[in-house]
Simulated assay, not measured.
Amino acid sequence: MSPKRADKIATGVIYGIVGIICAILLFIIAHVLIKGLPSISLGFLTKPAESFQAGGGIGPQIFNSLYLLVITLVISIPISLGSAIYLTEYAPKNKLTSAVKTSVEVLSSLPSIVVGLFGFLLFVIYFGWSFSILSGALTLTIFNLPTLVRVMQQSLASVPDSQREGTLALGLTRWECSKYILIPSALPGIITGVILCAGRIFGEAAALIYTAGQSAPALDFTSLDITSPSNPWNLMRPAETLAVHIWKVNSEGITPDAVDISNGSAAVLIIAILIFNILARYLGKVLYKKMTGGASK
């Protein structure tokens, strides 16, 4: 077989694999949207859920998912960025650094259910925080920390060494180099990684079943008592997210229109995750163009 023919066959196989993957993805998205979009309405998106009668909504679950997402990112981004800067710019190449990097890789491969059980034992039981937004946010931080650290570390490492050497030659400290040169240059990749992790956090269920809880109390946005379970900003209240709600509705089956609620919730969830991914690509291109002064590919 000639090299040119072998190259064409290999190229065709690669295109075929890509086509199969895209077809599977499109089939899943189309199936979920076709089943779920008819169930979505303004009332469905704003009303609270009902346990024993039809017509419930997912308003509190959507708010809980977004609120938990924000709290998790507020906690995890500074920790991840600091860790990435240390591992990339400060950490010496020795056995300790290698052990830290290996630990990060191992932690990223842990199943979410295992991390959820760890969060349950540590935050819910040991610290006595019960099922709460704070317990769920800290558990999700542990779950997504390795991915964020790795993405930020790769973004910082991709900055050319000439920029580091130039800033240090001008008399800037290593921290000033990181603050004014490396972080702005790596910002497109960092933001892309953060948004992709946000989609992963928004769709997580297993870890939150054991930490944030499976109940969604009625929320009173006029309440000024931050300790009240009905206060939406109370970090110590239980918070059933959208992904957990889908699992709960399907597992209990006590709601007459459980199938419609499940399909509609799944459609809202997949639309939100698609928005996160599209936003990641768009912001990455815009920031790359702005930071480099050229057109992004």
Rank of each mutant, 00 (worst) to 15 (best):
Leu134Thr: 08
Leu187Arg: 01
Ala243Gln: 09
Tyr67Glu: 06
Pro238Leu: 10
Asn263Met: 09
Lys289Asp: 14
Tyr67Ile: 11
Cys197Val: 02
Arg237Glu: 07
Val151Ser: 02
Leu68Gln: 15
Ser135Trp: 09
Ile71Asn: 01
Ile113Val: 11
Leu287Gln: 10
Glu204Cys: 00
Ser178Glu: 03
Leu145Phe: 03
Lys248Arg: 13
Lys297Met: 12
Ile226Lys: 03
Leu196Cys: 10
Phe143Gln: 00
Ala218Glu: 14
Ala205Val: 09
Leu42Asn: 12
Ala205Met: 12
Gly56Glu: 04
Gly59Ser: 15
Ile21Cys: 05
Gly284Gln: 10
Gly43Ser: 01
Leu37Thr: 07
Tyr282Ile: 15
Val286Asp: 00
Gly136Trp: 07
Phe131Gly: 12
Ala243Trp: 13
Leu156Gln: 04
Asn144Cys: 06
Ser65Leu: 02
Thr173Trp: 00
Val70Ile: 13
Lys248Thr: 11
Leu33Asp: 08
Val100Ser: 07
His31Trp: 14
Pro232Met: 11
Arg150Tyr: 10
Ile85Phe: 05
Ile261Leu: 14
Ser39Asn: 13
Ala6Val: 10
Pro188Tyr: 01
Ile29Val: 13
Pro48Val: 08
Ile190Met: 15
Glu105Cys: 00
Pro256Cys: 01
Leu274Ser: 09
Gly119Cys: 10
Ser39Arg: 09
Ala212Tyr: 10
Ile28Met: 14
Pro229Glu: 10
Gly171Arg: 06
Leu25Lys: 11
Asn250Ser: 02
Leu25Ser: 06
Tyr180Asp: 15
Ala258Gln: 09
Ile24Ala: 13
Ser132Gly: 04
Ile246Leu: 05
Gln153Cys: 12
Leu140Ala: 06
Gly19Asp: 09
Phe127Leu: 14
Ile71Met: 10
Asn277Tyr: 00
Thr88Tyr: 01
Leu117Pro: 06
Leu287Val: 07
Thr222Ile: 01
Asn250His: 02
Val194Lys: 04
Ile21Phe: 09
Pro160Met: 04
Asp257Met: 01
Ile125Gly: 07
Ile58Arg: 01
Lys290Ser: 13
Gln214Met: 14
Met1Gly: 05
Ile40Ala: 05
Ala280Ser: 09
Thr167Pro: 14
Ile278Tyr: 06
Ile29Pro: 04
Ser80Leu: 04
Leu182Gly: 15
Leu66Asp: 00
Leu219Glu: 14
Gly12Asn: 05
Asp220Trp: 14
Leu140Trp: 05
Ile270Glu: 05
Leu66Ile: 05
Leu42Tyr: 08
Ile77Arg: 02
Ser265Arg: 11
Thr46Pro: 02
Pro256Trp: 01
Leu110Cys: 11
Ser41Leu: 03
Ala280Phe: 05
Ile62Val: 15
Ser98Met: 05
Val114Thr: 01
Thr222Trp: 02
Ile34Ala: 06
Leu81Lys: 00
Ala91Pro: 00
Ala207Pro: 00
Ser228Gln: 01
Glu89Leu: 14
Pro232Asp: 10
Leu170Ala: 05
Arg150Glu: 14
Thr167Tyr: 12
Leu138Lys: 04
Ala243Glu: 04
Pro38Ile: 11
Ile183Lys: 13
Ala84Ile: 10
Ala169Ser: 13
Tyr210Val: 03
Ala218Asn: 13
Thr97Lys: 02
Ser2Val: 15
Ser228Asn: 09
Ser83Leu: 13
